[in-house]
Computed example of a mutant assay.
Amino acid sequence: MPSVVVLDYGSGNLRSAVRAVERAGADVTLTSDFQTALDADGLLVPGVGAYDACMRGLRAIKGERIIGRRLSGGRPVMGICVGMQILFAKGVEHGVETEGCDEWPGTVERLQAPVVPHMGWNTVDVPAGSQLFAGAEDERFYFVHSYGVREWELVTNDRTTAPLVTWAEHGGDRFVAAVENGPLWATQFHPEKSGDAGATLLRNWVQTL
């Protein structure tokens, strides 16, 4: 049974995330301990609330360094909701610009839809070859957010394998719903709140560890 740390930095549905990953077949520890998070087979980074608050909480436990060191060694990391957003270069909320972890270029910004927040079940546009969505390509997933990444900016020019980017749409506005990029996977929606479809995604991730 692979070991997974759910990173406790004061943000996210921690208990529901722990239970969901346990059901997916992992031995789960909820902790902010630097070394434990580095050593686990997988690291899950949850996130709920404001981008700036999440980044402050993450930096308080050196979470951005944990993520960076794991990825430099090819160790799996998965971000959920704001835990995905903080992987991008920056977030802009209420005129405040906050630096993110900068694992991917791009800006988290307010959705340009008639009704915000985007709350509820939505389909996603899954690219061919996705491991994350295997067996759940046509399912609906549960979203709760007002901000997202509306442009994918990373260009590899075939020098490295291009990430697989899954998109969703709300009110005519298109945004990144998930990314698979080597050891770094992330979802804007909440797999732990997405019933059987979300459980399938978490099992797919745990089985890669």
Rank of each mutant, 00 (worst) to 15 (best):
S3E: 10
V4W: 13
D8R: 07
Y9W: 05
G10K: 03
G12T: 04
N13S: 12
N13M: 11
L14K: 07
R15H: 13
S16K: 08
A20I: 09
V21H: 02
E22L: 08
E22F: 04
R23F: 05
R23Y: 06
A24S: 01
G25A: 10
T31H: 06
S32G: 15
D33R: 15
T36Q: 15
T36S: 14
D39Y: 02
A40Q: 03
D41M: 01
G42N: 07
Y51R: 08
C54I: 11
C54M: 09
R56H: 14
G63H: 02
E64T: 14
R65P: 01
R65E: 15
I67L: 12
G68C: 01
G68T: 11
R69L: 05
R70H: 01
R75S: 10
V77W: 00
G79S: 04
V82Q: 11
Q85A: 03
A89C: 03
A89W: 02
K90Q: 15
E99S: 13
D102A: 15
P105A: 10
G106T: 11
R110M: 11
L111F: 07
Q112V: 06
Q112R: 14
A113F: 10
P114K: 10
V116G: 08
T123F: 13
P127N: 09
S130R: 04
G135Y: 10
Y147A: 08
G148D: 11
G148M: 08
E153G: 05
D158R: 10
L164V: 02
E169S: 14
G171S: 04
G171I: 02
D173V: 05
D173S: 12
R174K: 15
F189I: 00
S194Q: 02
A197K: 01
T200M: 09
L202S: 05
R203S: 07
N204G: 06
N204E: 07
W205R: 03
V206K: 09
L209W: 01
